[in-house]
Design a protein around this nucleic acid. Structure first.
Lengths: 261, 261
DNA sequence: ACAAAAGTGTTGTCGATACACCCATGG
DNA sequence: CCATGGGTGTATCGACAACACTTTTGT
C-alpha cells in the first residue's frame, strides 16, 4: 500500500467549505474528444483510489454561469481554452451518484467524510462535450491522485458511475452535429490533407465514405483553404495540404451547413 | 386590494420544509405546446401577485429522476399524462432567478420569506417540452393564486424571468425535431384532414408548404391511417379524414424519419 | 355555373452515390 | 514498371420543389 499523503488544502477546502462556494447537488462533466492515429479518443482521468476512469468534471460556483463552469473545469484539468464547448444532455437519475467514490478518495488520506456532507448527496450532472486537437495541447495534471489519459472510444472500460452512458450520449450528439455544423477545426492540426480529414469523419461516423464524394462535398462547404504546399515524404502521390478558413468556419458554425452524412 | 387569504398548507410546507423534500437550486420548466384555431400556443400560468406569466415548472424530489419530476409537474398543473416529453436545454445563468417573485407571492399571504430560505437562492432549470392536443384536455388549476391560459406563440409578453428565452429555445428544438421525428400525434385531434395537419406544420415552421408535396411526403412516412370517412359540412370538396397509426407512429419515434422541411 | 378547396399526376433540378480514369511516387 | 494512394470527371438515381389538371361542393 502506498504511503498516505497529507490531505491537500484543495481537497480539505472542498470537503469542508465546498457547499459555500459551489452549487450543491449539481455538477458538470466534459466529454473531450480528440483524434489521434486515426482513432477517436476521449480524455479521461484515472481515479487511482477506486481504480476507475472518470470524465473531467466539477462543480458550479455560486455565481457562475454553467457554461463558464464547464470552461473553467476544462481549463483547470486540461489547460485547454477557447474551444467549441457544447451542452448536450442532463443526467439526473437519482441513483447515478456513488458516494463510495468520494469516500474512498478521502479515506486514502485517512479522512472519513461525514454522512451528511454535501459531496455525498445526490448529484445531477450537465454533460458538455468538446473537440480538441490533443497533439497540440499539454494535459496538465492538477489533482495529485489523478492521472489523465486518452482512451480509444471503442475501448472504454471501468468508467465510474454512469460515465460510459454520458460518453455514448455525447458521441450521439457529435454525430448528429456532424450533419449541420462544421467539425474538425479543433480536432485536426493546422495543416492537414483531405484524406486525413476524411479519416476523422469516418471515425466519428464509424463507416467508410467515398473518397471523391467526400472531397467534393467538403470543398463545397467552402470552409477550407487549399494551400500550395503538399505533404511530401510519404509514399505514393503527394496530397495537397489544407487549412480551415477561420472566418468562413466561424460563419458556418453560426449559420449551419446543409447536407448530411 | 384583495382580501388576504390564509397561507395554504402546501405553500407553508414548501417554504419551510421544501429543502428537505426537494433538490435545492434546481428546477424543471415545461414548455407545453398546443395547437388550436390554426395557432401554435403555449400553456402559461398567470402569477397574479406579480402580474406575469410563467411556465409550469416545479422542483425535483430528492429521490426522483428528472424526467419523472417533469411528468409529475406537468400532471399536477395540467392533468396531462402519457405524452411525449423531452429535455431540451439547461438554463443556468446565475442571474436568471428573481427572488422578488417568491417574495411577492408569499407577501400576498402576509408571509415574509427569510433571506436564507432555499426558495430565494439561485436556481438552475432544466427545460422540457411537450406537445398536447389541448382541446381534449382539461386544464386543472391546482394552486389557488394561479390561473392557466393558452397564449399564442407570437403574442408572448410579460413572461417572468427568462421564460421567454426558454420558450424560444423550445420552439427551436421543436423545429429541428420536425426534421427527423414524427410530430402531430399529440397536437392533433384523433381524426383530422391532411390540410389541417399541414397547418400545424406550417405554423411550427412559420412558412407555407406546398399542398401536394406535403401530402405525398406525409403519406410517405407511413404513419397515417386513411379513414373512409370524410369531413362533411364544410363548403367545397370534402377532404378525407386521417388518424395516426399508433404502432407505426411509435416506431417512427424510435427510428426517426428521414426527410427535412 | 362558378369559386374555392381538395385529390392526383408530371416534370425539372439538384444533391448523393457509384464508378472510371489519370497522375505521382517508392519500391 | 507496377502497386498504391491521390486528384479529377461523369452517369445514374431519388428526393424535393414547382406546376397543371381534375373533382367535389355550396352558393
Amino acid at each position: 500500500m502506498a504511503k498516505k499523503n497529507a490531505l491537500s488544502p484543495y481537497l480539505k477546502q472542498l470537503l469542508e467549505k465546498g457547499d459555500l462556494q459551489y452549487q450543491t447537488g449539481i455538477s458538470v462533466d466534459c466529454v473531450i474528444f480528440g483524434f489521434h492515429e486515426q482513432k477517436l479518443k476521449i480524455l479521461l482521468l484515472n481515479l487511482e483510489t477506486v481504480d476507475k476512469w472518470a470524465l473531467p468534471g466539477g462543480f458550479i460556483k455560486k455565481s457562475e454561469p454553467i457554461e463558464e463552469a464547464a470552461y473553467r473545469v476544462l481549463k483547470e484539468r486540461t489547460g485547454v481554452q477557447h474551444i467549441f464547448l457544447q451542452q448536450f444532455h442532463v443526467f439526473g437519475d437519482p441513483d447515478r451518484s456513488d458516494a463510495s467514490i468520494h469516500q474512498k478518495r478521502y479515506l486514502n488520506y485517512g479522512v472519513k467524510i461525514p454522512k451528511d456532507n454535501w459531496l455525498l448527496q445526490r448529484f445531477i450532472t450537465i454533460g458538455f462535450y468538446a473537440l480538441i486537437d490533443f497533439s497540440d495541447e499539454k494535459i496538465k495534471e492538477v489533482v495529485s491522485d489523478e492521472t489523465t489519459a486518452w482512451i480509444d472510444i471503442n475501448k472504454l472500460s471501468h468508467l465510474m458511475m454512469d460515465h460510459e452512458a454520458i460518453v455514448l450520449k455525447a458521441l450521439e450528439a457529435l454525430r448528429s452535429q456532424l450533419a449541420y455544423l462544421p467539425i474538425g477545426r479543433n480536432l485536426m492540426p493546422k495543416k492537414f490533407t483531405m484524406p486525413e480529414l476524411q479519416k476523422l469523419y469516418e471515425t466519428i461516423l464509424d463507416r467508410k465514405l467515398d473518397r471523391r464524394n467526400f472531397q467534393r462535398k467538403m470543398l463545397g462547404f467552402d470552409i477550407l483553404n487549399k494551400l500550395s504546399e503538399i505533404r511530401k515524404g510519404g509514399a505514393h502521390k503527394a496530397p495537397f495540404l489544407y487549412s480551415f478558413n477561420d472566418k468562413k468556419y466561424q460563419k458556418a458554425l453560426k449559420d449551419g451547413l446543409y447536407g448530411s452524412w
